[in-house]
Design a protein around this nucleic acid. Structure first.
Lengths: 124, 124
DNA sequence: TGAATATATGAGCAAGTGTTCATACGAAAG
DNA sequence: CTTTCGTATGAACACTTGCTCATATATTCA
């Protein structure tokens, strides 16, 4: 036993046990926690947020459209779209040579609306 | 002119101009965009998400409580709390030797609820 | 005052992230 | 078939991030 499992944990003795128990009981299962945090992390990047916003406003856009609208390289857009696709936040469909993307459902827009309202409001 | 400003942008010619114009018009101002993405990024980390969840469930917790509830080092918790504090997502108050933290307002809980609903629902 | 406790914070490091560059893939046109 | 266009993707890179460790600050108690 070279490692103390409580190393650095909490050397204090005045823990509010009731509150801690309540917090522990309310914890999300790990899988849900990771799912939520990954969703928020994906939206917590300016480029991906702009992509989602553009799709929300325009409905459908091909990679080329997004590249033009955001003034970013096709490669950068495509990489980010791949992440959003893997997380099922966007869906896509091929139209000839183009790949046309759209938001997968309304939840993303709703989340965006709540977050924007918070950011616009509380902070001056 | 050693640099082409359109380098890598979009070599295609079939841009859907109407849709692109719509996307451009709907874009958030840069400051708002960054504020929203930073908010979401802060919540897009498992540790900070657990902290926010614990505070949401227990109301108020000191650093020591959080360290015990999440089974993480005091230093790690304190660092993350500093970030949440700078973003005004939590407020704190000193109570003797303890620093008692709580969520700053209801928006965070609301955001968390929407995100959790999305993550729990659509994806199996 | 001095010791002990609870928290804050700077430095350092391993791991992760977003972009560019080069290139491969897929569909349509010649 | 080959070429061209739109898109996808792997590698490499600078930059960021979340942790640990050590230490500083602040508050209470002897």
């Amino acid at each position: 036993m070279t490692k103390d499992p409580d190393a650095g944990r909490c050397a204090c003795s005045v823990v509010h046990e009731g509150a801690v128990a309540k917090a522990r009981a309310a914890e999300l299962p790990t899988a849900s926690l990771l799912a939520v945090s990954e969703l928020l992390k994906l939206l917590g990047d300016p480029t991906r947020l702009r992509i989602v916003g553009a799709l929300s406003a325009a409905g459908e856009l091909c990679v080329c459209d997004l590249s033009a609208a955001l003034d970013m390289s096709q490669s950068a857009i495509s990489h980010q779209l791949a992440m959003l696709r893997r997380a099922r936040l966007v869906r896509y469909r091929r139209d000839g040579k183009s790949a046309v993307y759209a938001l997968d459902d309304g939840h993303v827009g709703e989340l965006l609306a709540v977050a924007t309202a918070h950011a616009d409001e509380g902070k001056e």
